[in-house]
Design a protein around this nucleic acid. Structure first.
Lengths: 339, 339
DNA sequence: ATGAAAGCGCTAACAT
DNA sequence: ATGTTAGCGCTTTCAT
């Protein structure tokens, strides 16, 4: 049987409440006593009993807020399922999970969702942050106020969040190159479509792709890298134009949003190339079923949602800081019958 | 706040202990009272409080036993990691997980491991059962004695276990065909190697493979199906012989154990074909790194171990029967940089 | 067959 | 600054 507060109290020659105050930093304790108790607890390997803790704090409710980037999007629906799974496990521990998602996403809107959660009294937030200094500033404010923040699916610079949970972009780019190499002729020509070269994640995907291509498939060539701005129509036009002028593309890789438009361009041209795409959106799923695209690379959205909430609840409930600053989910390769 | 036993007691005009006896079936209760209380609880949507329950039963320890087929095997090491992850989460709930694994596996040995767990007082067992009537008989005995049993990784007929957690063999065969089609020429010839046609799982894998081949890749042909008996040397010899006599094989699929020998045969012959293999064994991992095989299909061993223990603990702790009789893990496609 | 009471390990309000 | 006490919801032992 593990050691209890009571036992610590007896060993230290004080009362339970003093131990409680020392260990949990509530109220005034003589710094010396506090120190003594903390050291004792440490050396005895004291671990608070979760069951007792939850039971005793029945009245206190922990609130975790989640901010997602979009509704009606298969990817974020999966993230949300993971969040819900964690939420229902946490029901037994007095933690409530509040999820917010909007269709139209922009900076004021995301700021407003943050404020709304704060006013609902959340002690922790999982967010897919927009890459903007204003968002970063606000998040740092929250953190300074003692609210725990986890970056979910998307990363953002200069924010001191607890952890990032999401894709390992470089690795996913490398895996893309592996599968590209497997399904292509040795001297295949590739067209690489991403959202923006300015985005770290997209850039990492590209560079991972290039690395493996040059290491293992050195006769394959990237004819061009197109930026779709995550916009379906820009994607359509740019891909359409490029393919019209270049009859020798064997494979198109869509490494981010904007794949639907680009794939449509390939179809409209009846262009005989293979296609690899990222994330199981509704369109990608359909294209995969129809055999239009060879495979979809995925980043375990469900697991991302689940993990983010788990990290936050471990922090709130047990005071446990996450072991890692970055939690990467696997890059899955999905083919038609994986669905 | 959810309803409590105390509240139920007041509503029913009895004491907490009577409610406890009625709901948990301990001791004598007037059948009528019992019925009344149970109905009341049901209608009020009463759910026992996990925290309170665990706290009150500090003295009682739940024991879950796990029987694995092998040591020093990467696959089962991953299963065991999943088991451990679940075990450490369950630490807080007074449940101990005991894992047994042997190198040399046979029926008497597995029977002995079962007996050993029973004598240690486990209330639940997760087992990778050998396909044998004697094992089936013994497991049914345990179940009759009130011990919960989950089949982990391997299935077995005529046992009334709680759930099966493992691979969906048919689906994994279909996915194999997908990936085979993607990496091969339209008229490629395939050699299919499995453990035994007598084993349900292996057979399902083959038939899934055939289904998709004929649906989507109708010009590909299975030249032969070889049984390796899960033995590396038999595999080596049979594959060696076949390839020696047939110069036109484009792809060899190893759908089960015995891949190492077979792959060695391909290498010894310097035979220019592609290879797909199952499960991330130490050898397969190496071959994948070296580019000898194109990809490895995997069945999430970690998740299997984790899930099995979770199902059992939910049953023991909360009395919750699993929702499904069969829990399938994903069939992952691993390429070199997935490692 | 049913009730009363103690206690699991912790928190929180109150007392000193 | 520290101690005392009363629960949180349930199990378990002892009475009745």
């Amino acid at each position: 049987m593990a050691i209890t507060m009571q036992e610590l109290a007896e060993m230290a020659g004080v009362s339970r409440s003093t131990v409680d105050r020392a260990l949990n930093g509530r109220g005034r304790v003589n710094p010396k006593t506090k120190n003594r108790i903390c050291q004792l607890a440490e050396s005895m390997g004291y671990e608070p009993d979760l069951a007792a803790k939850t039971l005793a704090s029945k009245s206190k409710v922990f609130k975790i807020g989640c901010i997602l980037n979009s509704t009606g999007n298969l990817f974020f629906e999966d993230v949300e399922k993971g969040i819900h799974a964690a939420a229902s496990e946490l029901n037994a521990f007095n933690v409530k999970v509040i999820t917010k998602a909007v269709e139209q996403l922009n900076i004021p809107c995301q700021l407003q969702m943050i404020d709304s959660l704060v006013s609902e009294g959340v002690q922790a937030i999982a967010i897919t942050p927009l890459n903007d200094p204003e968002i970063a500033r606000r998040l740092n404010e929250l953190i300074a106020d003692g609210i725990a923040v986890v970056a979910l699916t998307a990363d953002i610079a200069d924010v001191n969040y607890l952890s990032y949970v999401g894709c390992n972009h470089t690795k996913s780019g490398k895996i893309t190159a592996n599968i590209a190499g497997l399904i292509s002729a040795p001297d295949a020509n590739v067209l690489f479509v991403l959202g923006s070269k300015g985005l770290l994640g997209h850039n990492q995907r590209l560079s991972g792709f290039k690395t493996v291509l040059s290491e293992n498939y050195s006769h394959m060539k990237i004819l061009d890298v197109i930026e779709s701005q995550d916009d379906e129509f820009i994607s359509y036009n740019k891909v359409h134009n490029f393919l019209s002028e270049h009859p020798d593309v064997d494979l198109v890789v869509f490494a981010a949003g904007g794949s639907t438009g680009g794939i449509r361009a390939v179809q409209d041209l009846h262009y005989p190339c293979k296609i690899i795409s990222f994330d199981l959106t509704r369109h990608n799923k359909q294209y995969l079923e129809q055999g239009v695209i060879s495979c979809v690379l995925c980043q375990e959205p469900y697991t991302q949602g689940y993990q983010a909430v788990k990290i936050l609840s471990n922090y709130l409930l047990l005071g446990k800081e996450p072991e890692k600053k970055r939690y990467y989910t696997k890059t899955e390769i999905l083919v038609r019958n994986s669905l």
